Simulated assay, not measured.
Amino acid sequence: MRSPRSDSVTLLLHELHRLPVVCRVDFKLLVFTYKSMHNDAPEYLCELVCPYQPTRTLRNANNNMLEVKRTRTKAGDCSFAVAAASLWTNLPTVIKTCDNFTSCKRLLKTHFFRIAYQCSST
């Protein structure tokens, strides 16, 4: 697709229905998270994902939340276990409770597309 150099890349990505790089990375991370929660990922990734189990009875106990581990460094925040859990916990409940992989991917992409282009959509 040819466009003038002065055109905005954001509008071109929106037109091509492509996610920006930051959203694409988060999307891929959440796909691996979904797979590791359902034991479809490699075993070393499945071991890093820990379901959240509250110490007392809470209303949100069955929302498919993950335990977010605390870290002391920025590098620790970028590890798969921490980044996946924090992104997964911040997702809408509809996506977290989805049983089908293809529908989960579709909902994830729609979610990130809305986040990425909410200000540019008219």
Rank of each mutant, 00 (worst) to 15 (best):
I95C: 13
C46D: 03
L30P: 07
L16I: 02
C50M: 12
L29F: 05
A81I: 01
S86D: 05
P20Q: 04
V68P: 04
C98S: 15
K69S: 06
M65C: 13
S121D: 08
L45I: 01
C78N: 05
K35N: 15
L11V: 00
C50Y: 12
L30Q: 08
I115A: 09
L16T: 08
S103V: 07
M65Q: 13
C78H: 00
L11C: 01
D7S: 14
K35D: 15
T33S: 02
D7G: 04
P42Q: 08
A61E: 15
T73Y: 03
M37D: 09
D26W: 00
V22I: 05
H14Q: 07
N62W: 10
E15S: 07
S6D: 07
K28H: 11
R114M: 08
S6T: 07
T55F: 07
F101M: 11
V22A: 10
S8W: 05
S3R: 04
R70G: 01
V22Y: 06
P4M: 03
T33Q: 05
P92F: 10
L108E: 03
A85V: 04
S121N: 03
H111K: 03
C119T: 15
S121P: 00
E43H: 06
A75I: 00
N39V: 05
N62G: 14
F32E: 11
F112L: 05
K28C: 10
V31W: 05
T93I: 14
G76N: 04
K28E: 13
R24N: 12
M37K: 15
T102E: 14
L87K: 11
V9L: 11
P54Y: 01
T55G: 14
D77Q: 02
L48Q: 15
L12A: 06
L45G: 04
N64L: 08
